[in-house]
């Protein structure tokens, strides 16, 4: 997070406040959800949820009270990781929709290579083809993994 502003953040911009709040909400939700389980199955997750909510509250309070907390900084992750997550989600959707393995994987690789900073259409195409071919050889041919099947026969 080298690009974050390192000056002392305001109370609402402190990361631990939000992290603690998120943990608190998750813990409470787990408690509430566990209340719907049968008698024998509910106590263990309910205790864990309660403890998580308490830990979240403690993190939020320390974030609010201690001045050493860092500012919340999401610019880098949003610009780098989020597009990659979207690309992988689209790839998984395409695999599930019966587009076969090769075409969606080529496109995913091209997009990830571009996001990684590789430039030049030919270079991207060659790298994407090599990575896809290597993965296909390793998983489908050598390890005998049944890769997602295409909906139409002419796709691989």
């Amino acid at each position: 997070m080298a690009n974050c502003d390192t000056s002392r953040p305001s109370a609402l911009a402190r990361s631990d406040l939000w992290v603690g709040a998120a943990l608190f909400v998750i813990g409470l939700y787990a408690c509430w959800e566990a209340s719907g389980f049968d008698d024998s199955s509910r106590s263990y997750p309910k205790i864990l949820g309660g403890l998580l909510a308490a830990a979240g509250l403690a993190v939020a309070l320390t974030g609010l009270l201690l001045k050493a907390d860092k500012a919340l900084c999401l610019a880098g992750p949003l610009r780098s990781a989020l597009p990659a997550a979207v690309v992988i989600s689209l790839w998984a959707t395409a695999l599930g929709a019966g587009s076969g393995f090769v075409l969606p994987t080529l496109l995913m690789q091209a997009a990830l290579l571009w996001l990684g900073g590789v430039r030049g259409l030919l270079r991207i195409a060659v790298y994407a083809a090599l990575i896809t071919a290597a993965a296909y050889t390793l998983f489908a041919l050598m390890l005998d993994v049944r890769l997602p099947a295409p909906a139409v026969s002419w796709l691989v």
């Binding site: 990659a84 790839w91 998984a92 996001l115 990684g116 990575i131």
Partner: peptide, 13 residues
Amino acid sequence: EAMVGVIALLCML
């Protein structure tokens, strides 16, 4: 730069 795609594909597969 190319390792990004390699890691993603190896992990996902």
